[in-house]
Amino acid sequence: MKRWLAVYAAAFFAFLHLPLLTLAAFSFNSSRFTVWERFSLDWYRAAFRDPQIMGGVWNSVIIALWATAISTVIGTGCAYGLWKRGSRLLTGGLYLSLVTPEIVTGISLLALFQWMFRWLHWQLGLYTVVLAHVAFSIPFVVIVVSARLRTIGPTLEEAAMDLGANEWQAFRRVTLPSLMPGIIAAALLALTVSFDDYVITSMVAGVDSETLPMVIYAMARRGASPAINAISAMVTVGFGALILISERMRER
């Protein structure tokens, strides 16, 4: 039984990891076809020279940084406020937003923006994408920061208040510093969910705001250039690194 379980687990982990590993391996293949020729970095060079890919990377970075900054601040504040005293309504909203199918979030934000544009003569663009990303990353931040707050507990802050600190000082000098690893972990998580999103972004993006996932999607559809394998490998490694750092931060 025990041995069978181990054999099964090996197969299970292979199933989880082999697709990405083979994809990464073939990003180093010199041939354009799925037959191994020889090792080469040509597709990485091609990816870095492709203006569409680089434009997508640039847009994605800007959007992810803005969305992360805003959602981390709002989400941290929200987690702290809920930790002081819960609100079933707000918590329910956060849960619901987490389970809302992405496509539904996408079309409802599109509907909101189009409705607003009846009065404001704006257009879809980078800022609508940033707003959308803020909207869906806040719950992730709240979950991570709340978990950290639960492990800290209320005693330290109470002690600070007993010693004469006001509410703001207690938060700023006592809770916030010990909360920092959780906030950084949350920010890194927000960064990855923002950088990864295709479905919602594609609904609310304007003509000038094509993100990297949108470029990858278009390339996957065409199936033309193995440069997409190189991009995919880099995205995977980048995400892996961010998440590992985030996990380390959470355990601190």
């Binding site: 697709p19 073939f26 990864d196 990858i216 999607y217 996957a220 995919s232 995205v235 892996g240």
Partner: peptide, 18 residues
């Protein structure tokens, strides 16, 4: 968890590639 945290789009594309 690791493959789960890499891009969903890339993971889906990996199956197209296969």
């Amino acid at each position: 968890m690791l493959p789960f945290w890499t891009s969903f789009l890339v993971r889906t594309y990996a199956w197209m590639f296969l």
